[in-house]
Computed example of a mutant assay.
Amino acid sequence: MDAQFLGTDDLATTTPPPVAVVVDVMRAFTVAAWAFARGAEKIVLSGSLDESLALKARHPEWVTLKDGPPAPGFDAVNSPALLRSVDLGGRTVVQKTTAGTVGALAVKDAPPVLCASFVVAGATAEVLRAGGSGSVTFVVTGEDGKADEDLACAQYIARRVTEAGSGAGSDSAEFLRRAGDSRAASELAEGVRQGAHPDDVALCLELDRFPFAMVAALEDSLMVLRPHTAPSSVAAPWAGERAAGRASA
């Protein structure tokens, strides 16, 4: 697999990637995984707070979630620890964050987009491996592409893809250490970031906590994230595009 690691801003000067994996460890795509684990049916990735509130106005039953402290019109904050006891059975969640959702929306025109963090790292690697992806762009969303927790997770997933069968324990300690020593982890642990819980960092570093990957695609103009437990369900579109390319060559 040919992997490249780009920040969100770098995407403006590149062609849409054939396969994109958008990584936000602390905390967007750890929170998204917890939302699915708590029963959410789908997550709408929102481009702005105003869009989130407009969606809430049209769909009062949807659950709105944002970075930072609680705010009028929003039902939850971007904290895995605060979300882990919430019953989201069958609900639609609208998520707006500073980095993760921005990164996913930046590649919305790509084929199915994977959203990832350590808690779904293994399942994400399985999807990439099943899709036979020759070239993958990992989008490092935090700190303008410099967030070491996101880069470490992206590099770990890439290694899991290329070292099939090595298992979850393969060299994971160093990648998790980097994430735990990151600026984001320090800010969360020190209470610098609002809308956080003391357990957030530990939950973000739980490798392979969940058995599903998360795939986003446009649905009626909205970028919608859904859990995928069967790698073959997203492998076919990539394989079809490569086959078409070979036929036209």
Rank of each mutant, 00 (worst) to 15 (best):
A3K: 03
L6I: 11
D9P: 00
D10F: 02
P17E: 06
V22I: 07
F29V: 02
T30H: 06
A33T: 11
A37M: 06
I43Y: 03
G47K: 08
E51D: 13
L55K: 12
K56E: 05
H59F: 12
G73T: 05
L83Q: 05
R84D: 13
R84I: 04
S85I: 07
G89T: 15
K96T: 07
T97C: 00
G100K: 01
V102E: 09
G103S: 04
A106G: 06
P111C: 12
P111N: 14
P112F: 13
V119R: 06
V120Y: 09
G122N: 11
S133K: 01
S135C: 06
F138Q: 03
V140A: 00
G145M: 01
K146V: 01
D148I: 06
D148N: 03
C153A: 14
G169W: 07
A173I: 10
L176V: 05
L176C: 03
D181F: 00
S186H: 13
S186R: 14
L188S: 05
A189S: 14
G191A: 14
V192M: 07
E206G: 02
L207A: 09
D208S: 09
F212L: 00
A213F: 02
V215N: 01
S221K: 14
M223W: 09
R226Y: 04
V234H: 08
G240E: 15
A243W: 13
A243H: 11
